[in-house]
Simulated assay, not measured.
Amino acid sequence: MRWCVSIGAVLVACAMAGGDVAGIAAPSPRNQLAQTKDDKTAVDVELILAVDVSYSMDMDELAIQREGYAQAIVSKEFLQALKSLPNGKIAITYFEWAATNDQKIIIPWRMIDGPETADAVANEIIKTPIRRASRTSISGAINFAMPLFDENPFHGPRHVIDISGDGPNNNGVPVTPVRDAALAKGIVINGLPIMVKEPSYSTMDIDNLDWYYEDCVIGGPGSFVIAIKDRDKFKEAIRAKLLLEVAGRTPERRVVPVAEKEPRVSCMIGEKIWQDRWGR
């Protein structure tokens, strides 16, 4: 099932520890502690943060994005959600992406199990120089992310890829078959479409980027999109999304799977815009 939520105080409140709020169900008490596998450290979730650094993102957006992730990881709400988990631990890695072969790991796999490890990860995110690069390949980011789950020293029952970006796929292979390959591996993909600027031909932005993410990018049980349409809500949205991912919360109400209907936005729209503009 997939669902879309709007950022705001209600979302932040529902993501905090403590029962069912605003239609979001707390994890089942039947959930068991993650078991170690091949001597890997047991965690509650293996989370990949895949962050867009394409040229359509301005330097201010990139800085706010970095700060948003760093502040979310050390926030009181995040640490409270962490403590409520069966193991009280998550594994996290953070990489930045642009073109199909342009991905850079900023934070290799780390375990977060409390304030000290959270501070260490947040500080490492902040101190890394900000960069920008050409093209937007969401498919390349997913392809890069998938094998990372097999290469880390942790084992958790949930594998999640968290993708943030401000435009559709316009480079590399189409996004939907790569998304489907990830879903076949039991990976959940969530999205954070950034829509703080008016769509522009020069930056290849599109209307309804949130629809594109819902219909073409995300997938898996409980997958969701949080759209950022106000620059002032940037950090709040990142915090809310991480809280939901760590808590593993899912909606109580039924949501129609996107696969049951036609995409509202063409999943090839980015490639078409690039072809129309550059002829290649």
Score class of each variant (00 low, 15 high):
N171K: 05
R254I: 11
V51N: 10
E116N: 13
K241C: 04
K83T: 12
L47W: 00
V53C: 03
T250F: 04
K104R: 15
R132A: 11
D39C: 05
V51Q: 05
D230G: 02
D58S: 05
A50G: 08
G140H: 05
H159C: 04
V53A: 00
V265R: 06
V246A: 05
V21L: 11
S137A: 11
A63F: 02
R179V: 00
G270Q: 08
L49N: 06
E46W: 00
D210M: 01
I163Y: 00
M195F: 00
A26H: 07
K104G: 03
K127V: 14
Q65D: 07
P115A: 12
Y213I: 02
D39G: 05
D230P: 03
R264Y: 11
E236Y: 07
D44R: 07
A122T: 05
D210Q: 04
T176S: 08
S223A: 15
R280E: 09
E151W: 02
W211G: 00
L82Y: 00
S28F: 07
L11I: 02
C4L: 09
N170S: 12
A72R: 01
P27V: 14
P177V: 07
L242Q: 06
A34F: 02
A247I: 01
P157H: 06
L47Y: 00
K76G: 04
K40Q: 10
A25Y: 04
W278I: 10
P129M: 03
Q35A: 14
C14L: 13
I92P: 01
N171S: 14
G220V: 05
V10K: 14
L47V: 01
I138A: 01
E252R: 10
P193T: 13
D232I: 07
W211E: 01
L11S: 13
R110P: 02
C4E: 11
A42V: 03
I269G: 03
T41A: 08
R30K: 12
R110M: 14
G219F: 14
A122V: 09
A22M: 09
R158F: 13
A9Y: 12
R179S: 03
A120I: 06
R132F: 00
P199Y: 13
S6N: 09
A98P: 09
P86C: 12
R179I: 00
A181Q: 14
D276R: 12
I64C: 05
D38H: 08
L79C: 09
D215Q: 04
P147L: 04
I273K: 15
A72Q: 03
C216A: 08
A145I: 01
A98Y: 00
C4K: 09
M16F: 09
F224T: 00
A25K: 14
D207I: 00
K272R: 13
G172K: 01
G248E: 06
R231V: 11
S164M: 08
M204C: 12
S54H: 08
L192H: 02
L209F: 04
E46L: 06
N208W: 13
I206Y: 14
A237G: 11
A70C: 10
P177C: 11
Y213M: 07
K185A: 09
K83D: 14
P29V: 13
R253H: 03
V217T: 11
G19D: 14
T203G: 07
R66I: 08
L192M: 13
R231H: 12
A133M: 09
K76M: 06
P147Q: 05
N87I: 02
Q80D: 15
G23F: 00
A98Q: 05
A17T: 15
D232P: 00
W278F: 15
C14Q: 14
P177W: 10
I194K: 02
D38Y: 02
L244C: 03
V246T: 15
G140C: 08
